[in-house]
Every structure is written in structure tokens, then in C-alpha cells.
């Protein structure tokens, strides 16, 4: 039986899922990226290899997320797709008929509007990362509460305080101020949830027609406080899908399956890459005043990929080598 891997390398977490031919999720992993995307991918593959049943043969791999190109080099991906498309694919496959997808991840948040199973519109946060997972993480750490308990504590609030949600810097000083005034923790956390949702809807949801069914996915969907705040503000039921935290990876796996169906072969390098030594370095190219910061990935002393050069001098040099060999 064939299985398909989806790898979503995000800023905060790296998620890997294994689906079967019928898009059923057989296994899923949620690992913190901690700034080391290569290690995270390798660690994830190691786990999956240990847990996979012998009958399953990997038929294809897809990557997504901000680290998708890096991950695709390491595993040999069949499809490399942006996270908006991946999330939409996963949502429309796992929750048929869905019309609105709210997604809040580590450093970005997006809204996807689907009509008749097709993306009709989307928006993503622009230059500001206020109100995303990393901010909640930071605040939880500052208040010394585990992020897992954040939502439950917020639910105990009797009278949520109002916190400025426009900018995370202001939100933080507002929160400190409210604490010093003597408001209790649940009220402050619930206020933060409300502020975050308000900011999200003003910023990203602006002008969008939010129709039911509405699903909420991404790492932040684990926070029940935010879910409740969404329901309160929108006045509709918000569904959290079973695999809410790995939806991007599910979408990547589905896209990989579709890609492999077309080409008939996979370029997956096998689980052996988990042990391989990858070395990522960067250098500043000084050949012109652009001073591009070129990134290169080496494995076993050999350069596998280079990118981030504007003129393509470094990245193309690799491509040519590939063609010859």
C-alpha cells in the first residue's frame, strides 16, 4: 500500500503527516522547529520511520511552509507548494463544503474563502505579525504559564479586560498595565484572546464574506480561548478539524499524491536522509553591489542547492551540474 508524506516547515513548528491513498491521516507529528528546520525535518522522518507499518511504501512527498524549499532539497519532494494552497486543499478535502478557513500559525495568519470547493479569495497578514502564535507563546512565557493551559485559563474569565490588539508591542504594555492595576489572570488572558480576534478580523478578515461552515486551523486553534472569542465575535459555530495543527502538511501530502499520479514516479530520497549530515551555510556574494546573502546546503561535502541570489549565478551553477551528471 502506498502512503504519502506531507511536510510543513513553519516558523514555529515542523509538521509531518502520513496519509493513505484515500486521504486518511495515518500518522502525524508536531515538532517545534526551534530555528533549525533541517534538524526538525530529520527528527520527524526518524520518528515516522520508527512508527510506520511495513506494508506502507512511500509513494510521494510534498513540502509546504516557509521552509518548503529547504525541506524539498533534503527529502526530494514531488511537490513544493505555498501554505495557502496547501491549507485550502486540506480543508476542502477533510471538511467537505467548508466555506471559510481561519488559520493562525506561528508567524502568519490567513483567511481563505472557499466557494464550491475552490479558493475564491484569501488574505494574509502584511508586514505585521501581531496576533499570531509566537506572540501568544511569548506572553505565556512572560506570565509563566504553559501555553497549553492558556485557553483553559482564559475560559474562566468573568469579565475580560479590554486590551489594545493593533500592535503586539502596545498589547504587551497594555497587559502589563492591566496586571499592575490588579486585574486577575483569566480576565487578562481572555481580553488578549478578544483583542487578537478583533485584530485578525479587522486586518485580515476585512471585507471578506465569512459564511458557515467556518473552520479554524493552525497551531493556535489548540487555544480554546481564541476559538470561543471567534464564536462570540462572529456569532457562528467555529469547527476545529481533528488534525487542525497539521493541516498544511495534510494538504502537502494530498498535493504530492496528485503530483505523483501525473508523473508516475516519486523523487523521495528515502528515510536514510534522517542520518545524513546536512550543512547549511550562507555567504555574502561580493561580485556586485547587491551583496546577496546566498545560502547553500551541503551534504557529504557536496553542494546540493544554493539560493537567494538575485542574478541566479550561484543557483544556476548547481542546476547545470545536475543536468550533466
Amino acid at each position: 500500500m502506498f502512503g504519502y508524506l506531507g511536510i510543513d516547515v513553519g516558523s514555529v513548528s515542523t509538521n509531518i503527516v502520513l496519509i493513505d491513498e484515500d486521504e486518511k491521516v495515518c500518522d502525524s507529528l508536531y515538532i517545534r522547529t526551534q530555528g533549525q528546520p533541517i534538524k526538525a525535518v530529520q527528527k520527524g522522518l526518524e520518528y515516522i520511520r520508527g512508527r510506520i507499518s511495513d506494508e506502507i511504501v512511500i509513494g510521494g512527498v510534498g513540502t509546504t511552509g516557509s521552509g518548503r524549499h529547504l525541506a524539498s532539497i533534503i527529502v526530494g519532494a514531488d511537490s513544493v507548494k505555498n501554505e495557502i494552497t496547501s491549507h485550502a486543499v486540506a480543508a476542502s478535502n477533510l471538511v467537505p463544503g467548508v466555506q471559510t478557513v481561519l488559520e493562525i500559525g506561528g508567524q502568519d495568519s490567513k483567511i481563505i474563502i472557499l466557494r464550491n470547493g475552490v479558493v475564491a479569495d484569501f488574505a494574509m497578514n502584511t508586514v505585521c505579525a501581531a496576533g499570531t502564535g509566537s506572540f501568544l507563546d511569548q506572553q505565556a512565557a512572560r506570565l509563566n504559564i504553559p501555553i497549553e493551559e492558556f485557553g483553559d485559563i482564559a475560559l474562566k474569565a468573568g469579565n475580560p479586560v479590554r486590551i489594545a490588539g493593533r500592535c503586539s508591542v502596545f498589547a504587551e504594555s497594555d497587559m502589563i498595565h492591566k496586571q499592575q492595576m490588579g486585574h486577575n489572570l483569566p480576565d487578562i488572558l481572555a481580553g488578549l484572546c478578544d483583542a487578537l480576534v478583533r485584530n485578525y478580523l479587522n486586518n485580515i478578515g476585512k471585507g471578506k464574506e465569512i459564511l458557515e461552515p467556518v473552520i479554524f486551523q493552525g497551531g493556535v486553534a489548540a487555544n480554546i480561548g481564541i476559538k470561543k472569542a471567534f464564536e462570540k465575535t462572529l456569532g457562528v459555530e467555529v469547527i476545529i478539524p481533528e488534525h487542525y495543527d497539521v493541516m498544511g502538511a495534510v494538504g502537502a501530502a494530498i498535493l504530492a499524491r496528485d503530483a505523483v499520479r501525473k508523473t508516475g514516479t516519486t523523487s523521495f530520497k528515502g528515510f536514510g536522509v534522517a542520518e545524513e549530515m546536512f550543512e547549511a551555510t550562507s555567504f555574502e556574494c561580493k561580485d556586485c553591489p547587491n551583496l546577496c546573502e546566498v545560502i547553500q546546503i551541503k551534504a557529504g561535502g557536496q553542494i546540493m542547492a544554493r539560493w537567494n541570489d538575485k542574478c541566479g549565478k550561484w543557483s544556476n551553477a548547481i542546476g547545470e551540474k545536475k543536468k550533466i551528471s
Binding site: S66, K81, N82, E83, I84, T85, V118, V119, A120, D121, F122, M124
Partner: peptide
């Protein structure tokens, strides 16, 4: 920028 452009172009083709 690439993420947004890719998703945007994908969306138009899908539609």
C-alpha cells in the same frame, strides 16, 4: 511575496 503570488496565481487557475 513569493508565497502570496504563488497562491494568488494558483487560485486563479483553480477557479
Amino acid at each position: 511575496i513569493i508565497t502570496r503570488l504563488e497562491a494568488y496565481v494558483d487560485m486563479i487557475r483553480w477557479r
